[in-house]
Each structure stands twice: as structure tokens, then as C-alpha cells.
């Protein structure tokens, strides 16, 4: 599904990713842990095409297609979704309008029929309910004045409605209370399937208790410093990143 090879990327001429390689086959969930500033969010932005994140070497493909040649909206239409570490506020655009516009833009790009207003409302209501989001909140401008946790939930709602194929969760657990974490994890797990894959960026084992990863990677100093099974996350929880910081 997603294949990253020897990826080098810079921000403002400062190298951040320094030869990162990673394979995430369809049907799998991979977790990435790593110290602050290691380049985890940078990786998520490079994969989604944010301006200012310059790829200097290497590449990334999704189902064999060169991901880096596409603009962010084209990547979204191919099914790439990023749950932002810090979701943006969109003043003046009700959440419902925003999500519906996004969904229909994606469908149009894929040559699918757009969803009618009633069809969309039905879908949005259903997903909001399963994530225990008050539907009235969706009438407010997206994320404006929402609490940190509400913004994270709103990311997962968008994910549930857009139904992407490749999901990147960048610290979706931070800012969530214990109940919300459980609800969000259920929402994410509902999207697991043989045709989908996920990259879960987190600092805490707790999220991985709910979203069980197939593989765990340590990202340190711009590259994958270690990979293993779920037990690697437990080990990191006990021992920290010291070992990898020294190696780097």
C-alpha cells in the first residue's frame, strides 16, 4: 500500500528527514513513536503535500503511484487522510458545509456521483452519533472555539465520513479525556480493514492499548531507528529513547 524509500526532506533548508524507509502493507496498522522534534509530524506533512516541506531525495508511493507528484487534494482523493496534531480553525464555514464540500470534491475527483444534501445529512448524523458528537456542533464554524479534545473528535468525524484508505493519525490521543480516547479509538478501529492501512503517531502506549498496531517503529533523528512488534512500544515506555538518541 504505502511505500517510503530513503526519504530526505527539509524545512527551510534544514534537513529533517534523513533517509527514512518504511513499508506499510494494506490491512496493517503501524505505530510511530519518537522523541519530540524527531520529524514525525514532518513525515505526515511530506506525505500529504504541505507547502514548505521540500523532498530532496527518495520517494513515496501509494499503491505504486508516485504520491509526491500529486497536489494535496489529489492525494486526499486517492484516500490519504491526515488527522492533524493541531487541527485548523475555518472561520465562517459551518463544519457540515466544510465536510460536505470536501466529500463531494473527493467524489468528483474520483468520478463518483456527488452526495445530495439529504444523503449527506443522514451520513453525518449517523457518524456524529457513533462518535457521541452533538449534531448542533456541526452547524458551527469548523473548530472555531472548539476545545482541544473537540477538535480531535472533529478530525475523527471527518475521517469517518470521508472514509479514507490510508490514515495518518498525528497524536490524535493528545488532549483527549479517557472516555473520548475510547470513543475515538472505536471510530478508528471501525475503519480497519483489508483494503486500508494506518500510520499512528503517538507518544503513549495508552492509545496502542485500544488501537493495536501490527508493527511499531522508532523515529529518531529523521530516520527509522528500530522496528518491532507491539512489545517495542512497551519497551520504549519503560526505557525511553536514550538508546536511540545516542545511536543517532
Amino acid at each position: 500500500m504505502l511505500s517510503i524509500s530513503n526519504l530526505h526532506a527539509s524545512v527551510e533548508d534544514k534537513p529533517i528527514l534523513k533517509g527514512l524507509s518504511l513499508e506499510i502493507p494494506a490491512g496493517e496498522v503501524h505505530a510511530i513513536l519518537g522523541p519530540n522534534g524527531a520529524g514525525k509530524s514532518t513525515l505526515s506533512y511530506v506525505l500529504t503535500g504541505r507547502e514548505g516541506y521540500e523532498v530532496t531525495q527518495g520517494g513515496a508511493t501509494l499503491d505504486g503511484e508516485d504520491l509526491l507528484a500529486l497536489d494535496p487534494s489529489e492525494r486526499a482523493a486517492r484516500g490519504v487522510f491526515l488527522s492533524f496534531q493541531y487541527p485548523l480553525e475555518i472561520p465562517g464555514v459551518p463544519a457540515l458545509t466544510f465536510i460536505r464540500t470536501a466529500l463531494n470534491a473527493q467524489r468528483k475527483a474520483r468520478g463518483e456521483a456527488e452526495l445530495s444534501a439529504p444523503e449527506f445529512l443522514k451520513l453525518a448524523r449517523e457518524k456524529a452519533q457513533s462518535l457521541k458528537i452533538d449534531f448542533d456542533m456541526l452547524k458551527r464554524p469548523l473548530n472555531v472555539g472548539f476545545s482541544g479534545g473537540e477538535k480531535k473528535r472533529m478530525e475523527i468525524l471527518q475521517m469517518a465520513i470521508l472514509s479514507p484508505r490510508f490514515l495518518i493519525l498525528d497524536e490524535t490521543d493528545s488532549g483527549l479525556d479517557i472516555d473520548a480516547l475510547k470513543i475515538v479509538a472505536d471510530g478508528v478501529n471501525a475503519l480497519r480493514g483489508p483494503d486500508r492501512a494506518m500510520l499512528v503517531i503517538t507518544h503513549y502506549q495508552r492509545l496502542l492499548d485500544y488501537i493495536r498496531p501490527d508493527r511499531v517503529h522508532v523515529l529518531a533523528d529523521g530516520r527509522i531507528a528500530a522496528s518491532g512488534g507491539p512489545e517495542l512500544a512497551l519497551e520504549l515506555e519503560r526505557e525511553g529513547y536514550d538508546k536511540y538518541a545516542r545511536a543517532a
Binding site: G49, D71, P72, A77, L82, F84, I90, F98, T101, A105
Partner: peptide
Amino acid sequence: DEDALFYAMQRGLPPEAA
């Protein structure tokens, strides 16, 4: 706001539409 633009594009809006 460039950040908001990127956010909208990440959700699927082509640059002009965003």
C-alpha cells in the same frame, strides 16, 4: 491563511475551490 488552505486541500478541496 496558508495553513487553513492546506487543511482544506488535505480534506480534498482542489486549490482553487479551497
